[in-house]
Every structure is written in structure tokens, then in C-alpha cells.
Design a protein around this nucleic acid. Structure first.
Lengths: 239, 239
DNA sequence: ATCCGTCTTGCAGGATCCCGCAAATTTTCT
DNA sequence: AGAAAATTTGCGGGATCCTGCAAGACGGAT
């Protein structure tokens, strides 16, 4: 068995290396890459079927890397190992995992044992292992209780990118009014209607405010924005 | 000499601990805190005059912590040790450093030697040490060549928070039109006027787009937003 | 003092955004 | 199939945003 580690931070990389060695004695070789691009390349060359991947790397995003790896070999097992459980990350991951693939999502704050257990479960037993904190988010985002519809999430990304109502309508094949409907739902759910002061006027710009509170609530983050921007550029090219 | 380490990540914390021990043999005691709040408390109790501080911690921001520490004891020496050199961080730091204080800004990607040298320079020699990458940003942001005026940065934060033109005017004691002038300068500098397609209409919503490209350019980031939101709440309270 | 550049302010108008209302369409459920 | 619920769409109007034009205000330099 070969294991590929894709991780920015040298300290974390060597810690992971050590953890893999000790949790998987049957592993003959541990490869290391320090960004998404190098990770994709190594995975291709070595046909690695076992990857530990950091999200949030400077050069190339972990999610991007995972997507191309899975596109080439959908049975690859990937353990995502991240600092944060932002909803943006969780959504990003579950959007790209191929049907039936074994993967995991473990926080860096998890204990040694938890990490090692996850390594064995995913790489040996082909099970999915998702940290409880992350799992909670997943369910909340699916259960429509307080979560967001995919279509709402779409418009959220679109206004975060700075698109016009009209532009969104074109991109999503909707009428202007429908876009605005979705926006209203979004504003409702993000609870953006609070007046600035109890006194009188002076409110928020709903559109901009929505993006802000989405950020503060971790529905959005830098890498989600980065991905969205890339997708937008892609779409623009086809017009 | 006592040194206080404020850092989220256990791995980085112990690495720092080791680096301090080896670079500063005259240091008798190394204290550790795992978030900003605990850091402030320890600094107060131990009157630590030497701090190594991570920015970007989950519980309480490194910049916030540094601000309160410096407010209580302005001669404290603080070395900021961060993953990123976002302009948002650099601006945030230089906004709070007291006149004449010795501080440093070193990236986590720097070599062992660089870190140790910085530790000695700041804590022993009371010099300011700022990584070249960071320094570059500082100068660019000051030299008005391509950088942003403080007033432009202010409106940027304000629209990022989702404030109305009118609200910004009140907050900054300006007329409506002046705010809009600043916004125009901002749009100009952020180069937000590009049409979406070469063909015809369908452009960006300038206001939202400006915030986005500011994010992508690292002029803004999560912690800057967090701080701005707190300041806004504070201001709202005084109305 | 005068000149010059920068910053500020007002006004006006066109574009966009936000939203209530209501009809048409699709989806879901029985 | 038929009814109920949700979604989509059009229209219209009020609020906000973006901008050109032009007149003061302030400060520094000659």
C-alpha cells in the first residue's frame, strides 16, 4: 500500500507521516506533496489509491485537487484533514465525492487515536468516517430546518461573486423575478432584515449584508469564493 | 525572562516552545495559551513583556489580543507569527502597534534560523523585525502607487459590512455624495469596471463585486471582517 | 495674496435593486 | 386524475445606487 500526503505545513506533514506509519504498518511507501497541484501530479504518476488531503492550501485548493484526482480515479480513498468545519468546506466536499467512494473528514483538533482509527477505517475497511462536528453540519444543511436549499446556496454564491440580478438570471436560466424571489428567501434565512438602530431609518444594503453574514457564519469562505470565481470564469468562456 | 506563547495549534505551539528554548537560553519560563482570551489573561497575570502571537485563532483573534495587551502595557514586545501575509493582517497589525514599541512579523513558512534570529532581535535587542514579504506589502499599502488610502479602506470595510451609503455617511461624518466619491475611487482601484462579456450588457454589481475582489486580493479576510463587525456593533451602541 | 490641486457637497437623472400583488406553471400528494 | 403546495413569471412602484456636472472649501506652493 502507498499513501499520499498532501499538506501545506511541514509540521503537520511530518506529523501525518508519523501517524500513517504507526497506524498502517502494511504501508510500504509514504509520498508527500506540499500543495494541490503537486498532489494531483503525484497521485497520477503513482496511481495512489490512498490520499490524506489538507483543505486550505495556498497554491491549489484541496477540494480542487480532490476533484481532479477523483475524476481520474473515482475509487481513490481520500481522507480530508482540516482545521475547520466551515459549512463551505463541508458543502464543497460533499459536492464532489463520487457515488460509492470511501472518504473521510477529520478535524485537525481530533486526537491521535481518532486520526489513526480513521486512517484504518477508510484505507483498509473502505468505510466513510466523518467527525461528529462535521456530521452535524452536513445534516443541518440537508435537513431543511434551518439549512439552505441548493438553489439558495447558488444565488448566495452568485451575489457573493458580485453578479447582477440580470446576470444571475442568465446564468441560471431563470427570469429576473425568480432570481429576486430566491434572494428574498435568502435574506429571510440569513436574518438580514434587522434595522440598524431601533430608532429610525438607516438600514443595511441587503445584498452586501447577506454576503457578510454568510461569511461570518462560515457558509462562505475564501476557498469557496475562489472556486466559485473559477467556475464563473469557466462559464463566461462558453458564452 | 519569561516568554508567552499564544497559539492555536498544538504542533506549532510545541515547535515554538522548542525554538524559544533554543534561541533564548536566558529565558527561565515559557508560558502557553491556546487562544487570544487565555493569552490576554496570562499576559496580565504574569506581566509578560515578551509574547509570540499567532494571528487567526478560532476563539479570539490574535490582533484583538495584542491590542488589549498593548493597551495595558505598551512596552510589551510581540512577535506575530502567521501563516499568511494578507494585506488585511498587515494593516490590522500596524493599526494597533503603539509608537516606539518593538514588534515583529514572521511567516510560518520562514526557516528555523530566521525565526530564532527574529526572537533574539526583538526580545533582546528591542528591534523591529518584519519579513521581507510582509514588508513589501506594508510599503505598497503606504506608497500610494497602487495602494489604498485609509479613507478608501474605511469605505471598503463599510460596504463589506453591508452598510448603506447613508449609514456610511453618518458613521464617517460625511455627506452622501462624498461617500459615493470614495466608492468610485475604490471601484477604480479595484478595477471592477470590466464588462462581463465583450458582447453587450450584463455587468457586475459594483458594490458587491468590489468586496469580492478585495477578498480575492487578500485586502480583506475573515478576521478583518470579524473585527470590523465588532467595531460596528460598538459604534451602534453609542448612538 | 494668488494659484493650483484635492476634497467635499448638492442636484439631477438613469440604472438597479427590493418587494407586494396576482396569474401561470410545475411539483407533490392523496 | 385532481387538489394542494410550491415555484416561476410579469408588472409596477418606491428606495437605493452610480455618475456627470458644477460650485464651494481647504491646504500647500510660488
Amino acid at each position: 500500500m502507498k499513501v499520499l500526503i498532501v499538506e501545506d505545513d511541514p509540521l503537520h506533514r511530518s506529523y501525518l507521516h508519523e501517524a500513517v506509519r504507526s497506524a498502517l504498518p502494511e504501508c510500504e511507501q509514504v509520498l508527500e506533496a506540499e500543495n494541490g497541484g503537486a498532489g494531483e501530479k503525484l497521485a497520477r504518476e503513482n496511481k495512489s489509491a490512498h490520499v490524506v488531503m489538507d483543505l486550505q492550501m495556498s497554491a491549489r485548493n484541496g477540494i480542487e485537487a480532490a476533484r481532479t484526482i477523483w475524476k481520474e480515479r473515482p475509487d481513490t480513498r481520500i481522507l480530508f484533514w482540516s482545521n475547520y468545519a466551515d459549512e463551505a468546506y463541508v458543502r464543497g466536499v460533499s459536492r464532489i465525492v463520487p457515488p460509492g467512494a470511501a472518504y473521510g473528514y477529520v478535524l485537525k483538533s481530533a486526537s491521535d487515536d481518532r486520526l489513526k482509527l480513521a486512517l484504518r477505517s477508510i484505507f483498509i475497511e473502505s468505510q466513510c468516517v466523518i467527525d461528529r462536528e462535521v456530521r452535524g453540519l452536513q445534516q443541518k444543511s440537508l435537513g431543511h430546518a434551518n439549512g439552505f436549499t441548493d438553489s439558495e446556496y447558488e444565488v448566495l454564491m452568485d451575489i457573493a461573486l458580485g453578479l447582477t440580478d440580470r446576470a444571475i438570471a442568465k446564468r441560471r436560466n431563470l427570469s429576473l423575478r425568480s432570481v429576486q424571489n430566491r434572494l428574498q428567501q435568502l435574506y429571510e434565512k440569513l436574518d438580514v432584515y434587522q434595522p440598524m438602530t431601533d430608532s429610525e431609518e438607516s438600514r443595511f444594503n441587503l445584498r452586501a449584508r447577506a454576503v457578510t453574514v454568510a461569511f461570518l457564519r462560515k457558509l462562505l469562505n475564501y476557498s469557496a469564493l475562489e472556486r466559485a470565481e473559477a467556475e464563473l470564469a469557466e462559464w463566461l468562456a462558453t458564452r
